[in-house]
Amino acid sequence: MTTTNHYKYTYRNRGFSPGFTTSGVTAVIFKELFSRITYRTKKTYNHWINAIPVFIGVLIMFFLFSYLRVFSFYANLIGLGVMALIILLIRRDLFREAILGGLLLLIISLPVYWIIFLLFPSWRDQTWFADSISDIYFISIPYEDLVWWFFVGANFAVVYDFINGLKLRKEPDTK
């Protein structure tokens, strides 16, 4: 794995709003597009212990990045991957939502990139560190970003349902 220790301010510093909008969209986009509603059964439950996979994932990311100095892309992928794996091993019924949630967030992100590229032509050159990323691009976007969006989306799509013990069922025709 690549390790790196050069940090500097870039235009990728984000704050509250990207997390707010992307997580809100990803949590429900599958349910809207595939007409799903959530419900609880006696078998599913809402308990703080359901948040443990999230803590494990975050701890893994923190440990890899802050202590082992692993490149944050890999630290993110391993942490998010473990989080999703634990969730989906416990709740296999959420598998489809996780995969499609990841793909949908990835797909939604594409036009956002393209519009930003169009309106801010020099942003791309000021955003990624050429010596850190693989330099492999897919439709003008570094593959690291696309993979990262997928992993983030797969987790965002199911984590609320998992923590709150929610199951999905087809929405009735009458809304």
Partner: peptide, 30 residues
């Protein structure tokens, strides 16, 4: 309307986590 609570909870939690992580933990390295 039935998913508003989920959107708000997720948004606020992840938004705050992202802002705090950016300020106190993660630096951009790629």
């Amino acid at each position: 309307k039935d998913l508003r609570k989920e959107m708000m909870y997720m948004g606020v939690f992840v938004g705050l986590a992202g802002a705090l992580a950016e300020k106190y933990w993660y630096a951009v390295d790629w």
